[in-house]
Design a protein around this nucleic acid. Structure first.
Length: 507
RNA sequence: GGUGAUGUAGCAUAGCGGCCUAAUGCACUGCUCUGCAAAAGCAGUAUUCGGGGGUUCGAAUCCCCCCAUCACCUCCA
């Protein structure tokens, strides 16, 4: 097996992936805060790590994939100036229980993950279900002297931690001296000793909706803490891969490391992975409102699928969007535009049609091997090497398309099929399918439904194609073209070839 | 202001010291196929990688300067 290399955000280098425990790889990905619908940018991140998860399994690793749901503690502003919890804010606005808000958006999130064909994680823990664990972690950090309590709230002592352990700032590349000197000038620090400190337990006010008993009185856990506590619980105090969006590097992941170190004394994660942002109009997609335009620079997945939006001329299906995401490396920004999506749509159909053609190829005659055999095998090998190189999906895809050309040539007879060996064809059929569906996680949206409706459609299409065939035999081009053009308007494409006519449905 | 990225054909992305007179998808042009198309195949389309210097036998890839864009700096995947 080729070694897998992963770019580690902590060392800023590609490193060979050597799991701590080869029997069970631990993968933790920061999930959503369920206070509103996920936007497309969120979906890119989860899709990137879905490919990571899939490829690890493809390489034969047994993986425990943990992705949390944050349903408490995520504040709109800073804790020590009385900022509001995001969940509570939505709950009040919609006149719902916080639990209702969490449930509503969790269901929506799962639905969207299904649409993108992202596999569910093995464990999806929620913050509110792990209050005891979080309280214990706060206590551990206090016991180790890296936190202090002020009037029912507990703050992480970033300064002390930074002075004693040479860890803080490492992930986000922050110069701590700058941070410390800079913030000395700041006033209005509230209860915190230092502005770089952050709340790990927050005192509840009378109107706080979600609160729990703790040794420090009623309160709720701080953002960052849930990830530390839950990753430790399910993956141990040291695990392999932690993923999330680039924008979580600081403060979220930096503080997560600090909490884990502060509680357990060890660096929690071997490989940190960060996906870059999805751009819209050249800017980061984000839900927050731009003060200049008064709008948020984002699009909801459903709006993109349906075409019901002001940005794009038409809708693009979930698999087209997934394919579009695969066309860029996860560590690069990806710019969303009509042209780019239209290109992805064509490419996606080409791949799917290529696979269908490939699976229908039947080997016949004696082998008469040529250089073709090596070329086909090399392309497959290279695609796998590309994936081993930090999950380089765009590079791997660039190997698959030349294979589609070969496949179509085999079908048309432009290249004789027996120029590759029977076993090469078998391998191609297997590997190509694995790439599309197991590794890239695509689904074939062009496949006719295998239910009653699908059978009816098949029957109707056969009838129509028979009528057209008769018309063509009589050189009745008017009827023939009418059938072709009107089906085309229904997005049913007829493909004439020497062997006869086939059809496919574009969505 | 601090920190970190990026700038590759019309568009979106790969490549990150010699395999690059630059790869993939889309778009575009020509040819084959076709009744005409579509689909498919083949060929072509950047003598060149933001601009200018430098290092090197050799640079899209390394260094310096400039220009432009983006991200993070306690809301964000």
């Amino acid at each position: 097996m080729n070694p897998l290399h992963i770019y580690n955000s902590l060392s800023k280098k590609k490193e060979e992936f050597v799991p701590t425990n080869p029997e069970l790889v631990g993968l933790y990905v920061c999930g959503p805060t369920v206070y509103s619908d996920v936007h497309l940018g969120n979906c890119r991140s989860f899709t990137s790590f879905d490919v990571v998860y899939r490829y690890l399994m493809y390489k034969g690793y047994k993986v425990r994939y943990v992705r949390n749901i944050t349903d408490a503690g995520h504040l709109v502003g800073d804790a020590d100036i009385g900022a509001e919890d995001k969940m509570a804010k939505t709950a009040k606005a919609l006149k719902l229980e916080p639990m209702e808000v969490a449930h509503k958006y969790t269901v929506g999130f799962h639905h969207m993950m299904d649409k993108f064909n992202n596999l569910p994680p093995n464990i999806e823990p929620r913050a509110t279900g792990h209050i005891t664990e979080q309280i214990k972690m706060v206590q551990d950090i206090l016991d180790n002297g890296y936190a202090y309590e002020v009037d029912g709230s507990v703050y992480f002592d970033t300064v002390k931690f930074a002075q004693e352990k040479d860890v803080y700032g490492q992930l986000s590349g922050r110069n701590l001296d700058d941070m410390l000197s800079e913030s000395r000038e700041l006033k209005n620090q509230g209860e915190k000793k230092h502005s770089a400190d952050f709340a790990i337990w927050i005192r509840a006010e009378e109107n706080t909706l979600q609160k729990w008993d703790s040794p420090w009185g009623e309160g709720f856990p701080g953002w960052h803490l849930e990830c530390s506590a839950m990753s430790t619980k399910y993956l141990g105090s040291k695990f392999d891969i932690h993923g999330g969006g680039e924008d979580l590097k600081f403060p979220h992941h930096e503080n997560e490391i600090a909490q884990n170190c502060g509680a357990c004394g060890t660096m929690p994660v071997k490989y940190w992975m960060h996906g870059d942002m999805l751009l819209l109009n050249g800017k980061k997609m984000s839900k927050s409102i731009d003060p200049e335009t008064g709008k948020s620079n984002s699009i909801m997945p459903e709006e993109l699928f349906s075409g019901n939006n002001e940005i794009f001329t038409k809708g693009y299906s979930p698999m087209v969007v997934r394919f579009f995401m695969l066309m860029a490396h996860y560590r690069s920004t990806l710019d969303l535009s009509d042209d780019a999506l239209a290109a992805a749509e064509k490419g996606y159909y080409k791949l799917m049609e290529g696979n269908k053609t490939l699976q229908e190829l039947v080997y016949n005659g004696a082998e008469a091997l040529t250089v073709e055999d090596k070329e086909v095998n090399d392309l497959m090998d290279q695609a796998l090497v590309d994936m081993d190189d930090d999950f380089n999906t765009p590079k791997a895809l660039s190997r698959l398309f030349p294979l589609v050309n070969k496949i179509n040539s085999f079908k048309s007879g432009h290249i004789a099929l027996n120029t590759i060996s029977a076993s090469t064809l078998e391998r191609l059929q297997k590997v190509f399918k694995e790439f599309l569906f197991d590794i890239f996680g695509l689904m074939d949206e062009t496949a006719a439904a295998a239910d009653k409706d699908g059978a009816v459609l098949d029957g109707l299409m056969n009838l129509i194609m028979d009528i057209r065939k008769d018309a063509r035999a009589k050189k009745d081009w008017g009827t023939s073209d009418q059938i072709r053009d009107q089906l085309n308007a229904l997005k049913i494409r007829l493909k004439d070839s020497k062997e006869g006519t086939t059809w496919s449905l574009e969505k």
